[in-house]
Design a protein around this nucleic acid. Structure first.
Length: 597
DNA sequence: AGCACGCCGACT
DNA sequence: GTCGGCGTGCTC
């Protein structure tokens, strides 16, 4: 008589435990398989993580059904999910279910194609950084390696954004057309699933950051294109950074990892400097960057005489100009001229932004749209004043001053456009180098003075990237002596060294670990009490802790937010110390966000 | 995570 | 009295 066997399963809930279910020995249930189980009197989707003969639990319920003929996850992926959950403060089950295409996260029967024989794993693997100004140049650096790896397995190329991926695909199609599979979250569930099935063996996968969790068993190499791009950080649970996951996966599978960009992320640079990864480089294109000292701090968008003169000259010589001002809409603030009230969002502590094209106001945080009253609804007397300069107002002002010129916002740009107005969004698109004769940056100061230790570095990357669009770049700043600007004039390494020196002095990443814990709750006082008590509990356990700090915006979508920042040397050790206090913090309607850098 | 259970203050 | 908010424990 056949004995029953036990399946250990993980469930798609934020619970750091697995559960045992029995099944008849004749049932074809294997690790990595999706099954249906009865959990708390509900039919629930579960993934089998192991098969065993015995369980400590008596009165086991039995597996209701297998939902597929072959396992959709490999045993290796199950092990990788465990590694991820030891590295990040999130549960094994959550990472495991991230590895499933959304189509498979529902209770449905599916046919899964079996995976054939896998290639032997390599004995050695390497991490490389490849630097060149443009995507085409970088592609030529790693193209032959894709070709080589595709002979025995699959290759994953990650892109920061779907638009970038689609542009790049046009170039890669010529070389690898039939082997290419695209995977990103903008696709329908069904399409993503179909592509995922097709990509499980011997494919060139082009994907956004989600694709790394759905990697095929025969993956031979990961390439991260534009590796310094900020979109690689996921700002939602589980707050991972694609580069970290790519490093973990490369070490786990012993496969090559190529990081590719116009300039390395700071963490990558430290690895290059410490000789942990190799550098291959194409010399930088010639470019001219000029820094202009301005008089009035934080008023960079006013068309100064210098700026007016540059534009007049460019128009006269029929040269193309792009102006960068990272502020959408017409005006960032709406103020009552009588009582001084600043119009703010109902759900966020955020001033409303006025949009002239739509003739309404919008909250920059939660995107709620408001129709504006004729007079101030606070004092019922004053008229509303539009304060500050956004892209729409800049465009209107320029059209006023240069009525003969062809001026357009970036999204309406045409062949004959002489002056384009752009935000930083364009740096995540694939571009043709030096399409503009002249580039002008109006709000470098605002970007580099954000309350964030990464602000200066991010601004440097931003300025370097936009300088690739233009034959020459002019930056207006109140702070022209800052090391950021001297760094733009010399070899890029000089700036990286200066930045590392600063980080080291303050033991900030990449020289230490930083854990940011954010608590969100509707009730402000209660939240403050909770965050304070957490602070007091953590304080004696750690060396450095700061807070509670108000997040910006303090109130977002109806919830107040406080943050604690904890600094330490060793990531895993620091997390072990604070883990219990943080994860056992269970308060009704309280939301936790934990970011580890 | 969700859901039940049980403790305690508020109120027709 | 009993309604309901919220901390606690449990799920194979």
């Amino acid at each position: 008589m056949a004995q029953d066997k036990i399946a250990k399963v993980a469930l798609p809930i934020a619970l750091n435990r697995e559960f045992d279910y029995s099944f008849g020995a004749s049932a074809k249930i294997k690790p990595g398989m999706r099954v249906l189980v009865d959990f708390r009197a509900r039919k629930t989707l579960a993934v089998v993580t192991a098969i065993k003969k015995e369980s400590k639990i008596t009165n086991l319920k039995s597996v209701l059904a297998a939902l597929e003929n072959n396992s959709s996850l490999t045993s290796e992926q199950i092990r990788f999910a465990r590694i991820l959950s030891s590295f990040y403060p999130y549960n094994f089950g959550e990472f495991l279910f991230m590895m499933l295409p959304s189509y498979l996260k529902r209770i449905r029967n599916v046919k899964i194609f079996p995976v054939g024989k896998l290639p032997n794993s390599e004995k050695t693997y390497q991490h490389k950084f490849m630097r060149a100004d443009t995507f085409s140049q970088r592609y030529y650096l790693w193209r032959s390696q894709i070709k080589e790896k595709l002979e025995t397995g699959s290759v994953l190329v990650c892109f920061p954004q779907v638009s970038y991926l689609n542009e790049a695909k046009k170039i890669l199609d010529a070389d690898f057309g039939p082997k290419i599979k695209v995977m990103h979250s903008y696709e329908s569930e069904k399409d993503f699933f179909t592509n995922w099935q097709g990509s499980r063996q011997n494919s060139l996968i082009l994907g956004t950051r989600v694709a790394i969790f759905c990697y095929p068993a025969d993956l031979k190499m990961i390439i991260v294109e534009d590796e310094n791009n900020y979109s690689y950080f996921q700002e939602e649970k589980p707050f991972y950074h694609l580069l970290q996951v790519a490093f973990l996966l490369s070490k786990f599978k012993k496969i090559d990892l190529i990081l590719s960009s116009s300039l390395p992320a700071l963490y990558t640079y430290k690895l290059i400097r410490d000789k942990k990864i190799s550098l291959q480089e194409v010399a930088q294109n010639q470019r001219q960057i000029k820094v202009v000292q301005t008089q009035k701090y934080l008023k960079p968008a006013i068309i100064s005489p210098v700026l007016g003169e540059i534009l007049r000259k460019n128009i006269a010589e029929n040269k193309k100009t792009v102006i960068f001002l990272n502020r959408k809409g017409f005006a960032p603030r709406i103020i009552c001229s009588s009582c001084g009230q600043i119009l703010a969002c109902e759900h966020c502590t955020m001033p409303l932004r006025f949009l002239s094209q739509k003739n309404n106001a919008v909250c920059p945080s939660c995107a709620k749209v408001y129709q504006l009253p004729k007079i101030c609804s606070h004092c019922n007397a004053g008229r509303l004043r539009l304060v500050g300069i956004g892209n729409e107002r800049l465009e209107a002002k320029l059209k006023e001053i240069f009525p003969q010129a062809n001026i357009a916002a970036w999204k309406n740009i045409k062949e004959q456009t002489q002056i384009a107005i752009a935000t930083r969004e364009i740096i995540s698109s694939l571009y043709n180098p030096q399409v503009f004769d002249s580039g002008i940056v109006l709000d470098a100061d605002r970007q580099m003075s954000f309350f964030d230790y990464e602000a200066v570095f991010e601004t440097f990357i931003y300025l370097q990237k936009i300088s690739l669009f233009c034959k020459n770049l002019v930056i207006f700043t109140h702070n022209s002596k800052h090391y950021l600007f001297s760094g733009l004039q010399t070899d890029w390494r000089a700036f990286y060294e200066a930045e590392l020196k600063q980080r080291k002095a303050l033991s900030l990443p990449p020289f230490g670990t930083l854990i940011k814990i954010t608590l969100r709750l509707k009730d402000e006082n209660k939240l403050f009490n909770k965050v304070s008590s957490l602070y007091n509990k953590l304080k004696p356990k750690v060396y450095e802790i700061y807070g509670p700090l108000k997040e910006h915006p303090f109130k977002l979508r109806g919830k107040f937010r406080y943050t604690l920042i904890i600094k330490g040397k060793n990531r895993r050790q620091l997390w072990e110390v604070i883990k219990d206090e943080v994860l056992h913090l269970r308060v009704a309607h309280l939301y936790l966000a934990i970011v580890v850098k």
